[in-house]
């Protein structure tokens, strides 16, 4: 009973959702279907309605969403135990820290490019992604990112006449 392998399996199986991540996807699909239906119901249609109007495709896609969501739930529930364990092992194996670092770098770039400017944010983004993906030499990551960002800035504003936002540096 207290054999290490059995114990390990036991803790992993405690929730019925473990190894059934598909159910989350099915939930997402249903939410999207709901948004589609809501959009269709609140639409002020001018002219023809029904399949002829702008709502027709929305209804068809919403029906497809419900069908695939139900199919997904059914296949998730019917999933055999070994496949569930494999799926659970995969999610346990995910390196969330790396994902969040990379995503954070991109998010910061998106949010701040207009205010802080291309040169700084592109450097930060490159360095964050490279660090997140496992290169721990921060100084070198920043340097490489800065060189790339500078080259792009010079090429774009100098040769193509396309202004990248200068942000903080532009005001000085």
């Amino acid at each position: 009973m207290s054999a290490p392998t059995a114990a390990g399996e036991g803790t992993r199986r405690t929730t019925p959702i473990a190894g059934r991540g598909e159910i989350v996807v099915a939930g997402l699909l249903l939410v999207l279907a709901g948004v589609l239906v809501h959009g269709n119901l609140t639409m002020d249609v001018v002219g023809d309605g029904g399949l002829l109007g702008p709502q027709g495709a929305g209804w068809l896609v919403a029906v497809l969403a419900v069908l695939v969501a139900l199919g997904l739930v059914r296949s998730a529930l019917a999933k055999p135990a070994p496949a569930r364990e494999a799926a659970a092992a995969v999610s346990a194996d995910t390196n969330w820290r790396a994902v969040l670092t990379v995503f954070g770098g991109l998010l910061a770039f998106t949010a701040l490019i207009e205010t802080v400017g291309w040169l700084i944010m592109a450097t930060v983004m490159f360095a964050t992604v490279a660090t997140g993906l496992g290169n721990r030499n921060l100084l070198r990551n920043v340097t490489v990112g800065f060189i790339l960002a500078s080259v792009v800035q010079i090429t774009f504003s100098g040769m193509l006449g396309l202004a990248l936002p200068s942000g903080l540096l532009g005001r000085g």
């Binding site: 990379v102 991109l106 770039f109 998106t110 490019i113 592109a122 983004m125 490159f126 360095a127 992604v129 490279a130 660090t131 997140g132 993906l133 496992g134 290169n135 990551n141 490489v144 990112g145 790339l148 960002a149 792009v152 774009f156 396309l162 990248l164």
Partner: peptide, 19 residues
């Protein structure tokens, strides 16, 4: 190294999407 490869890809992907 792969970190630079992917950092470079994201760098240019973001540049393209923005410009």
């Amino acid at each position: 190294p792969r970190p630079y490869l992917y950092a470079g890809i994201l760098f240019f992907a973001s540049l393209g999407a923005y410009t």
